[in-house]
Design a protein around this nucleic acid. Structure first.
Length: 812
RNA sequence: GCCCGGGUGGCGGAAUUGGUAGACGCAAGGGACUUAAAAUCCCUCGAGAGCAAUCUCGUGCCGGUUCGACUCCGGCCCUGGGCACCA
């Protein structure tokens, strides 16, 4: 053992050992005691960033520590390799997306290896690999058979200059990021997955997710957004048609002063659009970005359609307005506007001088004309419904309307069907085609999968490169021989990431999507990934798992048993991302300090589920810790002969520290998932061991007890240094396959407890008492304490609060 | 705008069930070693008052519950994430 800690040398050595011995290969045929630990696979953007390092260090520490506790661990890694950045790189640097992606994967895999993560690389997969997406296409065809997928027209952000569909992130201030042209909303035919059918199940089974953070569960619940309300039909004056609105506040029906419909509502016929004012409004609206955020933050705007609805109770005429804040996809795309009791309607009414009627009041009768009263209360200005409570009024009004067939109870979900088609090249082709003569839709026969992308592709033309390809889409129907055209849309990349955790279990299987024998590895026992995926990715994966279950591919209903949502690594207060150009390259740190230090630091720096504001300076402390550990182990190794320490009390003290640390780290690792405090505990233990060793330089046995426990507990975080020292200290077995240190409870026993004395809840003194001392004896000792006496003099003790071995509080 | 987090010394954070606020680490200051520097080691380190013992204040802001609140409740401010085509 070298006197000096040289991370570079020992880290290389450790990695060679792991590779040579296939240390992290999992036998998937053995499912006994299985523990499937998965970190979210990365998009191969080029370089690993700190968020990855954090994510994967947490995953690796969970994998390695569970292995030491006897679990049969499987920890795979792969690449979410379809996506927009590859196409951007192709346009900007004239490299083929496949080449660009391949190069990035190679580099990032090397980085992952250099960080010492214990992945089973034999199950590696890339979603852009035909071996992967072949099964995705097959799965899609099963969904098509089962009518889970369908096609309909939907709006996109359209760049009229580049003639291309823009992602929300590519729209900046209402303009295309490259062309700078004002975007337009455009309807195009698109593929959808019927996730709505699963809304209720996705909602209900959230309850089963015992080991998920409650914040994520609440977010998903709200996202699905179940609401129970009523559909009301408003007749339209001088017309046969009706406008249907959904409301959860039927009690405010008498406060309706207008109806608002979304700008793409079917009521807006060609006839209506002839009106110039309306045409101008719709054109202006067309350049609003297609996101809920922009809809709810733009200034309220609208225009009167001239159409009049008839109020179902009063028969009064109510104007129908087009309003820019009404969502097309939610409910019926029309709302009954009650400005007296809804904030958005109120703002709209104020702007356009529409009447505001208050029909609900709070029970304590505090009328506030400045802002609408949005809570439930008691009805006023509502004719025969006056003085009813909101809850009662909803029932009564519903009954009255239902009798006339003008309303019915309805359950709505906020969750919308998932649009899965993209007009891009670098994605998985949707395996269908259309006959040229009648445009009829046909699936590619399963035995002809995968449908691969053409290699020769031209990005210089406007629009979708795949659609522009001269020959790729032109095929003969494999059944009839008719001239046909391939679907040129590709999948949303969320499609790939929604089932990769299943494919990892059969990554190299060419016969089926999932090997039946590996089925028992599901669900994933521990999933680790960024909080930014709390809704979309995790919801889609849960949805896919249920689809796979219905197709009898998997036999449970939820994919991820336990979820750790790690906070983000921020730089200058914001998410690190290429577009913000605020990334920190972990490579520099690895070169300077080694992988063990960077892993240790990123775990120590903050709790896993909180954001971490990156700073370069603090890492020094973690490096120092490893150096001190190294130096203590070096000294230990130099001890020639064990000399028994004469002071039994000091032995007892250090053994208590050792086992107290084992207890805390074990809790922190496996129960609390509080890894930063586990590191703090290990730092404390090292400090104590160093002090002990200075006092008793030849007391070998106790020191070994401390060092070996510390090395084992540290090995999941800093695996290289611990691997190296472990062998030096004389073991034949690598530390990663050792068992977790045993807790000796007898070492923790203590005869005295420090107790605090409070007067009126304020700390005034401390005393040492026998553990388990009762209130009477503690009261006697405490009240005769020098510092306490003056506080009790001439005072009447009203109450004594006593907590065993903790405190006594005199209330005077 | 809506949903979900977070706010504690100069900084990252700790306080596990309402019971000792600031563990552990960084930075800073002082000292030892050294020709010197680096490395290492030792000491100090929330604010104010005091020679000191010690006392007072202090966990984003305002208010409440409690013998006792960083922790629970109500209202507000700031900040991070998500908002369905970034992944």
């Amino acid at each position: 053992m070298d006197k000096e800690y040289k991370p570079k040398i020992i880290e290389e050595e450790a990695r060679e050992y792991w590779e040579k011995n296939n240390s992290f290969k999992t036998d998937l045929s053995n499912t006994e005691n299985k523990f499937y630990c998965l970190s979210m696979f990365p998009y191969p953007s080029g370089k690993l960033h700190m968020g990855h390092v954090r994510n994967y260090t947490i995953g690796d520490l969970i994998s390695r520590s569970n292995k030491m506790r006897g679990k049969n661990v499987f920890q795979p890694m792969g690449w979410d390799s379809f996506g927009l950045p590859a196409e951007n790189a192709a346009i900007e640097n004239n490299v083929h997306p496949a080449k660009w992606t391949e190069k990035n994967i190679k580099h990032m895999k090397e980085q992952l290896t250099n960080l010492g993560f214990s992945y089973d690389w034999s199950s590696e997969l890339s979603t852009s690999d035909p071996k992967y997406f072949r099964w995705e296409q097959w799965f899609f065809l099963q969904l098509l058979k089962n009518k889970i997928v369908y096609k309909k027209n939907a709006e996109v952000n359209w760049d009229p200059v580049d003639k291309t569909v823009l992602a929300n992130e590519q729209v900046i201030d209402g303009r295309g990021w490259r062309s700078g042209a004002l975007i337009e909303r455009k309807q195009i035919p698109q593929w959808f997955l019927n996730i709505s059918n699963y809304s209720q199940e996705l909602l209900d089974s959230i309850e089963e997710l015992e080991h998920w953070p409650s914040s994520v569960k609440i977010m998903q619940k709200n996202w699905i957004g179940k609401s129970e309300g009523v559909n009301i039909e408003f007749k339209i004056k001088n017309s046969q048609s009706c406008v249907s609105v959904f409301t959860t506040r039927l009690d405010t029906l008498l406060g309706v002063t207008f109806i608002s419909i979304s700008p793409s509502h079917p009521l807006i016929s060609k006839n209506v659009v002839k009106n110039k004012e309306i045409k101008v409004f719709l054109e202006k609206f067309s350049s609003t970005k297609l996101s809920e955020e922009s809809l709810s933050t733009i200034e309220k705007d609208g225009v009167d359609t001239g159409l009049r609805a008839i109020h179902p109770l009063t028969n009064e005429e109510i104007p129908i307005w087009i309003a820019n804040y009404v969502l097309e996809g939610y409910g019926t795309g029309a709302v009954m506007s009650v400005p007296g009791h809804d904030v958005r309607d109120y703002d709209f009414a104020k702007k356009f001088n529409l009447p505001i009627i208050n029909v609900v009041t709070s029970s304590n009768n505090q009328d506030n004309t400045e802002s609408p009263f949005v809570e439930e209360g008691i009805l006023i200005n509502s004719g025969k419904y006056n003085n009813l409570t909101s809850i009662r009024a909803k029932d009564v009004i519903l009954k009255d309307l239902a009798n006339r067939n003008q309303a019915s109870k309805k359950i709505k979900y906020r969750l919308r069907d998932w649009g899965i088609s993209r007009q891009r090249y670098w994605g998985c082709p949707i395996p269908v085609y259309y006959h040229n003569d009648d445009k009829s839709l046909h699936p590619i026969p399963e035995d002809q999968l995968p449908v691969k992308l053409p290699d020769d592709i031209d990005f210089s033309l406007d629009g979708n490169p795949l659609a522009n390809h001269p020959t790729w889409k032109k095929i003969k129907c494999p059944i009839t021989g008719k001239d046909s055209t391939r679907e040129t849309d590709t999948f949303d990349t969320f499609f790939e990431s929604s089932w990769y955790y299943i494919r990892f279990l059969s990554a190299n299987n060419n016969k089926e999507l999932l090997d039946k024998k590996h089925n028992l590895w599901l669900p994933v026992d521990q999933y680790v990934g960024g909080i930014e995926h709390a809704i979309l990715h995790l919801l889609y994966a849960r949805f896919f798992h249920k689809l796979m279950r219905d197709l009898k591919i998997v036999n449970n209903s939820e994919p991820f048993l336990s979820l750790l949502s790690q906070g983000m690594v921020l730089k200058d207060g914001a998410k690190m991302s290429k577009s913000k150009n605020n990334t920190v390259d972990p490579n520099d740190m690895i070169t300077k300090y080694g992988a063990d230090t960077i892993r240790l630091f990123i775990i120590f720096a903050s709790p896993a589920d909180q954001n971490l504001e990156w700073s370069d300076s603090a890492i020094e402390g973690s490096f120092k810790f490893l150096k001190r550990l190294w130096s203590l182990c070096y000294s230990y190794n130099e001890i020639k002969e064990h000399v028994v320490c004469s002071k039994q009390n000091d032995i007892k003290k250090i053994r208590k520290k050792i086992h107290h640390s084992i207890m805390r780290v074990t809790q922190d690792f496996f129960e609390r998932k509080s890894f930063n405090t586990a590191v703090a505990t290990m730092m404390e233990l090292l400090n104590e061991l160093i002090k002990f060793h200075k006092l008793y330089p030849n007391e070998k046995d106790t020191l070994y007890e401390g060092i070996s426990s510390l090395l084992k507990m540290l090995s999941p975080i800093s695996p290289h240094i611990t691997h190296y020292i472990w062998f030096v200290l004389g073991s034949d077995n690598p530390i990663h396959s050792e068992s977790w240190p045993n807790l000796d409870k007898s070492a923790l026993e203590e005869s005295k407890a420090e107790l605090i004395i409070q007067i009126n809840g304020k700390l005034r003194s401390r005393i040492l008492v026998d553990t388990g001392a009762n209130e009477e004896s503690v009261k006697a000792i405490a009240s005769s304490e020098q510092k306490i006496k003056p506080y009790l003099m001439n005072k009447k003790i009203k109450k004594i609060i006593f907590v065993k071995d903790k405190l006594i509080n005199f209330v005077v």
